[in-house]
Design a protein around this nucleic acid. Structure first.
Lengths: 194, 194, 194, 194
DNA sequence: AATGAATGAGATTTCATTCAT
DNA sequence: AATGAATGAAATCTCATTCAT
């Protein structure tokens, strides 16, 4: 069996960390090669181009996040359970790999437009949850597209705030507070707080 | 005595728009000069470097936004009035100059760390409002730093969603809905919505 | 009467000092203008170009040095008197204006080729003195061109050594020692030392 | 495994010759690349910058000259033998590679200050020889630092004079005359010239 | 599978000089 | 007489990519 993609994984991780720290354009092929302990040419055995490397990394993460949300969502019955599970899942992901998160944050603006319609997509997953909740009467009728954006904003900004030291400690610790805020936004009146 | 610097404003606006559209690294000095109708060298009379140009533009906007929030905040008596005024102000700013907003969004991650402590700072303004509201008993005791991040996230993501066509129409139209959501997050029980 | 060439002199002195410190190419028109307290354009009222400025400064010094040597030479009767006077004169010049000397040192290689045959020329002055001394039998027959180079080398290197702190104190203090060395080179057996 | 760096030596020699002819600032990277038959970028594989290239070339020569003098010095017993050998060695070096010499002459003023204390240094070698000669009583007590400068000046200026056609023929031909002059400067009374 | 020298295109920046004011 | 904005040309350097070894 051997371990064929050893170098490939090292290269990708090196690239990711450099991208997260210096940005895409601030990271040269040479920097990646150096950090990965290979030469510049070797990179092209695994990826057709720098652009291809970035894309590949982005979609890996993008899919992983969408999947994570989808699974979390399935794990709960009611909206509040689903939302809580999703937020916990997302924050755990952040705590495990903050550099990965920062990378996604950086390239989202460039690459979101390339996301194919048929791909698992975090925003779509959230909207799906909200639509079902409205239909089931768990939350009042509302502009679910807008609500989904708001939830996304809350979660993302919490993570960004963490990066700039405005939010302290592991993010999972804040899961409940954040989830509560989200549910208030959605006007969920459940077993909730209050 | 020398010629008046007719081109400075044009250069800055051209730069801003290109930065907003193609990103900082995606915009070359040549592109800016071309769009502004000057030669590349002309740029360096007004700004020491590309970096300096970016910085200067960012801080212009940064201060303008902080000021806008500070003024809006003063215009209201109660938290809810303040919050509503701030959001309306911010969304109006966005509607007037979406490119400016997009630019700020792009560079914030690079430049936020350079913000001096003595500068007007949007996050500080928001936190100030929240602290006072807690003290006055308008909203329950809470982690105001975290709450400020949440509000910021809600507002920013709404604007981002607008850019990616997930939120439609002028943003001011959504002021009330968004403000309501923010107030629910803060657990404000006022003259509130229904 | 007035004082018309006030600015011109300031500009030239500023240029000279900057050239001496940073070299010709290392000194920009802007630097000179700044140091002289005028604007870039103003420079072109007094000198047609940067090149012209450099040339003009060089020939001013070049002639002054040649003249200085010529006068010193005339002040003495015998070779040794002439040589001693020339060296004392040259070192006094250096002590009075080391920056001027450094400037001349810098540009000599570029400009020596442009020296016109009819100009007063330090090397020619020295050679004239030597030729006459040979004719008068004060010193033995020798390759006066080569001897002139040697004398020049001794004097110049003493000045260079001063700049690099290998030779200490005002250069005039070393006049006698250096002149003695030069006379030994020329095999002058006069009232000489020992 | 990669291609051997066939062009490195060619680049360095091309650079040296252009520097010698047009000066450092008068030589552009493009000129060097063109002369060497490579593209501009190729230069940066072997040297981090133009400055680095200049430095590297200078120290190569600087060390070679210091070594040459050190060896010549060891080859002789008495001062006069040492001095004669050093001058012969130096002039041979000049005759073999006048462009290299001219290059060293050009940059010495810029780079001498960067010479590390632990490097072989021509001036130190000369001073060492003189100190020992004084101690052995071969030459009278004197300011050896100043004497070393004088010897250096004599030798250097001879070479400069050669470049400006004031001294003719291969320099080695003048070794004896120059060495004699140097020994007279030092007041060496040996088997000397009559 | 991998190396790293070399390419080719482009980026930022500098600067002597000109010229409208 | 002077200003300083703007030009135009060039300089240094970077970098994704290719390819001989």
């Amino acid at each position: 069996m051997g371990r064929p993609p050893r170098k490939k994984a090292i290269i990708e991780r090196s690239a990711l960390e450099l991208f997260a720290e210096h940005g895409i354009d601030g990271t040269s092929i040479r920097m990646i090669a150096e950090k990965a302990g290979v030469t510049e040419g070797a990179l092209y055995r695994h990826h057709a181009s720098k652009d291809d490397l970035v894309r590949s990394l982005f979609f890996q993460y993008f899919e992983r996040i969408a999947e994570l949300l989808a699974q979390a969502q399935e794990s709960g019955e009611s909206v509040d359970q689903k939302i809580r599970a999703m937020i916990r899942g997302f924050f755990t992901f952040y705590d495990d790999d903050p550099k990965g998160f920062r990378f996604v944050l950086l390239v989202q603006h460039v690459l979101l437009e390339n996301v194919r319609g048929d791909m698992e997509n975090p925003v779509e997953v959230i909207m799906g949850v909200l639509k079902k909740a409205v239909k089931k009467g768990e939350i009042p009728k509302q502009d679910v597209a807008l609500s989904a954006q708001i939830l996304l904003g809350i979660v993302m900004q919490t993570a960004i705030g963490h990066r700039y030291k405005r939010v302290q400690g592991p993010l999972v610790q804040h899961s409940t507070v954040i989830a509560d805020a989200c549910l208030r936004v959605l006007q969920f009146r459940g077993s909730g707080e209050s």
